[in-house]
Simulated assay, not measured.
Amino acid sequence: MAANSGLPFSRPPTPKMPPSQVGFIGLGNIGYLMALNLANCGPIHIKDFLPLLVWNRTACKAGKLVNDVGVNKARIAKKPEDIMQECDIIIINLSNDDVVRCMYQRLIATLKNSPPIQDEILVETSTIYPSLAAELDLMVSSLPNSHLVTCPVLGTPIIADKLQLLLVMSGNYRARREIAYLLVLAAGRKVVDLGEDLEKAPIFKLMANSMILGNLEILAEAFTFTEKSGIGAQNVRDLLSNYFPAPTFVSYPILACADKMLHEQFDGEKGFSIDGGIKDALHIRRLTAKHNYPMPAIDVAHQHLLTTRAIHTRHKSEDKATFDVLDWSSIIAGTRAAAGLDGLDGRKVSELLSESLEHNL
């Protein structure tokens, strides 16, 4: 065990460290903060760390990152292929499986035209279905000196901002070791090492997300129950603080999502999008079907996420949507709709309940 408790590996041999260049593709909510921290902290923890090379489909995000850290710590690539040609380590963080697959096809085509002379490591940090990891490995391993590490991360944007992400890692041993020493302290706090099988890390990430999504479903049902019964949603929030005080369990995601549900702060640009939640739910259900293991809570959560997205789509078509992208905590709209309440407008929920109370009296 290394001196740093977050690292399950001995330090890599010094000739390979530091890498000549690190690149980052995909600056979403988590990816942006990972890249920001890596650009800022890389020079502190790794000798002669070069400015991070970044690319994002929306160029303004890459420009914002460079403005945030300074031109001496990051620079912008014109296209992903430039990152593949210039970098020894490429970290990829994208939204879904199709986008990930397309990106790798572009990157591998670049390497086929100019095969790497020294080791090249691609680090897949997106949440993907496990079989896609095997597919990507076939692409990467077809080239000399090229390795893939699957490294999905666990944590909210707040946790990412504090460099406290949990790094779940599988793949080639030496490559895992290199990436662990690059990312721990510069982007995350600890590595969960799952060995050589590249599919293990994506499976672990989906398992973790199933726990989070299941808790979101229970939380949404509890809020809706108190709204419908007239107890008041604030009492659910207070119950969480007073009766379930375990810091890790409560802070992520329970209290944070409880606050979003209570105040209808469903801005997906600041959290985890509902599309990402639906994608993960589909992956989880596919895995449970493969292993003959039912997870009814996820089935119900998936239905409520779809209902919420349908409501939001209608609101957008009517130009009534408060947010362009919904956070997955908006799952409560699905439980409200199932209870005959307005999904995304708490004021209407209160009005309906008041009318119902007056009628009963």
Rank of each mutant, 00 (worst) to 15 (best):
N172D: 07
A175S: 14
V191Q: 07
I254Y: 07
R189H: 10
P12L: 04
F49V: 06
I89H: 10
G70D: 06
A187N: 09
L219D: 01
K228I: 00
C41E: 15
N360R: 14
M211C: 13
T226D: 11
G63D: 15
H283C: 09
I25K: 05
P144I: 01
D238N: 14
K228H: 09
M1G: 15
F24A: 05
S210H: 02
S330I: 00
D197H: 09
D48K: 11
L111P: 02
D275V: 14
A160W: 02
Q164G: 12
A187Q: 11
F49W: 05
W328K: 03
A222N: 02
P152C: 07
N4W: 05
G340Q: 03
Q303L: 09
T322D: 09
E358A: 10
K270R: 12
N235P: 00
R176K: 12
Y293Q: 15
P19A: 04
H147K: 12
L107W: 07
V54Y: 12
V300N: 04
T335S: 00
V149C: 04
K260D: 02
S329C: 00
H359T: 09
L357C: 10
L326S: 01
S126W: 03
N145V: 00
V168G: 02
K16L: 09
I46A: 10
C151A: 13
H302Y: 15
P115G: 08
T58K: 12
S126I: 03
E135W: 05
D319C: 13
L143F: 01
V325I: 07
F204I: 09
L239D: 03
M207A: 13
V153R: 11
N29P: 06
I92Y: 09
I284F: 14
E318I: 11
L341G: 06
R106H: 11
P43Q: 07
W55S: 12
K260Q: 05
T127D: 03
F225R: 08
L107D: 08
N145L: 06
R11T: 05
H359Q: 11
W55P: 10
A337T: 08
R174Y: 11
F266C: 03
I121L: 01
W328P: 00
V123W: 01
K270D: 07
K16F: 09
L154G: 11
Q164I: 06
L148I: 08
H302V: 04
S142V: 06
G28A: 03
I76G: 13
E81Q: 08
C102M: 14
G31V: 02
G343F: 03
F223D: 00
Q105C: 10
R189E: 11
S10N: 09
P19H: 07
G195Y: 11
N37A: 07
K205N: 04
I212Y: 06
I44G: 06
P116W: 03
N113P: 01
P19R: 04
L33T: 08
R11G: 02
E199T: 15
P12W: 00
N37G: 08
Q265T: 12
D97T: 10
R75I: 12
R237I: 02
M139P: 03
D98W: 10
I311N: 00
F225V: 02
I91F: 03
L216T: 04
K320L: 14
D280H: 03
P202S: 09
A333G: 06
G214K: 01
R174E: 15
V71W: 10
P115D: 08
V191W: 04
S356E: 13
I30T: 06
C102D: 15
K112L: 05
